[in-house]
């Protein structure tokens, strides 16, 4: 069977799609869908659906099925991670100097905003609608890529690999049936129906203590004895959640957290 592939840029990063037996137009359609999701979910466009929700904090607003699902995923991530993967850190991210796309450079740094309240207190999601607590905002950059990779893999068929900026899901046996060959911690793993993700603080960094990974306990860029964590999980969404959680927990507690949850991980100090 022929291996079809497509590389493109979306979600502020490089993306790759692979499909065994897929048609080029199917991959192009999948990439276009990611483009639509990007335009809905970006916080850097005041007209996006997410920005509208943030701007309308304090009242119920209608949301699309995809945003509703992703907001519910944000609540799940909060629970799974014990509150560490917190989509409600938008104010802290902006205060840390990440108010515009990374390629445009940092914005003014005004550290000192209080830590966000628990996500279930600030975000309510109903059927086709959502409400944010006044004065709060959400950023879905920490959970969207893994979740979208899972959704896209569902669309692309039984034998595909979706990699959205390093957060990926490998579905089926790959080109040779034994699994998709994926680089992980310097090794090549054969992934079959597994997600993988990496979280780190050395990329998207603009100062000694300034980077994009906010610790919701402090409202400040995270301080950890780990610089990078790669994780395998049953889904891309879980891999992304587990990787961020382990990085925020640090080496010892992160190792403990991943035991029994993940079939493989790499903790890089």
């Amino acid at each position: 069977m022929f291996l079809e592939s497509l590389r493109f840029e979306a979600l502020g990063t490089g993306c790759q799609l692979f499909s065994v037996g897929g048609r080029p137009e199917e991959l192009a359609g999948a990439a276009a869908w990611i483009g639509v999701m990007h335009s809905r979910l970006t916080r850097f466009d005041a007209a996006s659906e997410l920005s509208q929700l943030n701007d309308g904090a304090g009242r119920w607003l209608p949301v699309s099925a995809e945003l509703e699902a992703l907001l519910k995923e944000a609540l799940r991530a909060y629970l799974v991670s014990g509150g560490l993967v917190h989509a409600g850190v938008l104010r802290a991210l902006v205060a840390a100097g990440y108010a515009r796309p990374f390629k445009e450079g940092p914005s003014t740094v005004l550290l000192g905003v209080p830590p966000p309240p628990p996500l279930p207190d600030m975000l309510a999601v109903g059927a086709g609608r959502a409400r944010l607590q006044e004065g709060t905002g959400v950023d879905l950059g920490g959970i969207a890529k893994g979740w979208l990779a899972d959704r896209l893999a569902e669309r692309l068929g039984a034998n595909c690999l979706v990699n959205l900026g390093g957060d990926l899901f490998a579905r089926g046996g790959g080109p040779e049936g034994s699994g998709w060959p994926v680089g992980f911690a310097g090794k090549t793993l054969l992934l079959k129906d597994l997600g993988a993700a990496t979280s780190g603080t050395r990329y998207r960094r603009w100062g000694a203590d300034l980077h994009h990974l906010i610790d919701p306990r402090s409202g400040l860029p995270a301080v950890s004895d780990l610089e990078e964590v790669s994780v395998l999980a049953p889904t891309g969404a879980d891999a992304e959640i587990f990787a961020k959680t382990a990085l925020l927990l640090g080496r010892e507690a992160g190792d403990y957290f991943l035991s029994g949850r993940s079939p493989g991980w790499w903790l890089y100090p």
């Binding site: 592939s5 502020g12 990063t13 490089g14 790759q16 692979f18 890529k145 690999l161 990699n163 900026g165 390093g166 957060d167 990926l168 040779e176 034994s178 699994g179 998709w180 060959p181 994926v182 680089g183 992980f184 090794k187 090549t188 793993l189 054969l190 993988a196 993700a197 990496t198 979280s199 780190g200 050395r202 990329y203 998207r204 990078e228 790669s230 395998l232 891999a239 079939p263 493989g264």
Partner: peptide, 16 residues
């Protein structure tokens, strides 16, 4: 988790 030396990775997980 199966590792291999006989295949090159098509892609990698990485920070973004």
């Amino acid at each position: 988790v199966q590792a291999t030396d006989s295949q090159q990775p098509l892609t990698s997980t990485s920070v973004s």
